[in-house]
């Protein structure tokens, strides 16, 4: 999605790369995972147990819709978590659930 820090009023943070589902995603320090995903056009990055797409909803860490797995830790809120160079982000269902 559009970035506005490209305008002259703002300077980006230092460029870093995170790995999202094996794909290298360029980002800038200071972004959250959700910010980095949105800035690169990803809007739906989680699938619910029933296969429904979800992305950012509350944006302030309350709804837990945007969760991802980060460096092996599940249930991490993408909207609150700042990116770091080389961070491994997995968006799939952390566990396949069979009722």
């Amino acid at each position: 999605m559009s970035r506005i820090e490209d305008s002259s009023r703002f300077r980006r943070g230092q460029p870093v790369t995170i790995v999202v589902d094996g794909e290298r995603v360029p980002a800038y320090r200071g972004k959250t995972i959700a910010g980095a995903l949105l800035a690169t056009g990803h809007r739906a990055w989680r699938r619910t147990r029933h296969g429904q797409p979800r992305g950012l909803f509350c944006g302030i860490g309350v709804c837990f819709d945007c969760t991802v797995t980060v460096n092996g830790t599940t249930n991490v809120r993408a909207c609150l978590t700042p990116i770091a160079d080389g961070m491994i982000v997995e968006t799939g269902i952390p566990m396949e659930h069979q009722p």
Binding site: R43, A44, P53, L56, C58, G59, I60
Partner: peptide
């Protein structure tokens, strides 16, 4: 649906 979010977000 992704794309629906709060104003706060």
């Amino acid at each position: 649906l992704p794309g629906v979010m709060t104003a706060g977000a």
